[in-house]
């Protein structure tokens, strides 16, 4: 169920308002203290369409920071379910690619029920990037600025109208229901999209090919002294992991409200922390900091390609902004390239 449509810009707010009626609409909004974050929309006019690329990633909506798995009491166990329908609007291409890869991770082999039930009820409307930030490098990874596949609905800003591309079965419903708002695209629409794509691609300041880095590591040209120097600068704050749209590690804890009542929940965790792999009897497989920093980079640069054929990095540049030690993915890749 794929198809391309054209939506007049004047109709966008009407379309979103209608979508909000049947599901929870989430979009980038300016919060009280001035930051732009993804949150539930109350007024359609408040949506920030020209937000920077590095707003917090949408992973918290499908893989929440604190997810309650079930409640238990003296009597028994209650499972919690998440069946709220959601539309997330205004996601960037890089985040959309991250979600597509997360689908493969959580949906593959052993399906993760909590993730899949949330993802099933979520539709992403991504906007192709026309204004990449200086920290962005998705162009070198094929995860942006324009996506060819792996999205639900992709909008391309063509000045007075949007080119609407439907890329999945789930994404078809919101368009089909309001078919009267959409026109069929002509040749000029595709030409305009092509031009917008080219002009967006020319705006990238960083050109990074992680494949070179991977080849170098595989060939053994990067020795431990390099990783030692990286580890020296690591503060173990975990910022890169929390901000990364692709980091999926979690911790499971039991939280007791009263002695016989409580919740089991899973929380985001960070492989940069020493206790991450701590086993019974204080055995630490990754005791030194260098092992933990190396593990993060190797997971993204080596293990992801091995498992999925794609890098565990989408080039969103969030770690570049977050990392206080300046040892983010882009910097490391530049050094090794």
């Amino acid at each position: 169920m794929k198809g391309d449509f054209v939506l007049n810009k004047a109709h966008l707010s009407y379309w979103l308002r209608q979508l909000r009626k049947e599901s929870d609409l989430i979009a980038p909004l300016r919060s009280v203290d001035g930051d732009i974050i993804l949150s539930s929309v109350t007024g359609i006019h408040e949506i920030e369409l020209d937000c920077p690329a590095n707003i917090p990633s949408p992973k918290e909506f499908i893989f929440p920071q604190k997810e309650e798995m079930f409640k238990f009491s003296g009597k028994g166990v209650d499972a919690l379910n998440n069946s709220r329908k959601r539309v997330i609007f205004g996601v960037r291409s890089c985040d959309m690619s991250a979600v597509a890869l997360m689908d493969r991770f959580y949906g593959g082999l052993f399906e993760d029920g909590f993730y899949v039930s949330r993802r099933k009820n979520t539709i992403f409307i991504s906007i192709a990037c026309n204004n990449p930030d200086p920290t962005c490098f998705c162009i070198g990874l094929g995860t942006g600025p324009y996506l060819k596949s792996g999205f639900d609905i992709q909008l391309t800003d063509l000045g007075d109208r949007y080119l609407v591309q439907v890329g999945s079965k789930e994404g078809h419903a919101p368009v089909k229901r309001f078919r009267h708002l959409f026109q069929s695209p002509g040749k000029s629409d595709y030409d305009d999209q092509y031009e917008a794509n080219l002009s967006s691609q020319s705006k990238f300041e960083k050109r990074i090919t992680l494949e070179n880095v991977r080849q170098k590591i595989l060939a053994g040209k990067v020795d431990d002294s390099f990783w030692e120097s990286v580890a020296l600068r690591c503060f173990e704050c975990g910022g890169c992991v929390y901000e990364c749209p692709l980091c999926t590690c979690f911790n499971v804890i039991d939280w007791k409200e009263t002695p016989d009542k409580g919740v089991r929940m899973r929380l985001w965790d960070t492989c940069m922390f020493k206790g991450f792999t701590k086993m019974a009897g204080n055995v630490l497989p990754a005791e030194k900091k260098i092992m933990r920093t190396k593990r993060w980079y190797f997971h993204k640069l080596l293990y992801y390609p091995e498992q999925f054929g794609k890098f565990g990095c989408v080039g969103c540049g969030r770690c570049t902004i977050t990392c206080p030690g300046r040892i983010d993915m882009a910097t490391i890749a530049n050094k090794l390239d």
Partner: peptide
């Protein structure tokens, strides 16, 4: 081998040795 685990399904990422 022995590693810390939370899920048993290859999701929590604690027990991986390499990939």
């Amino acid at each position: 081998l022995e590693r810390r685990m939370h899920c048993g399904m290859g999701k929590c990422c604690r027990c991986n040795v390499g990939s």
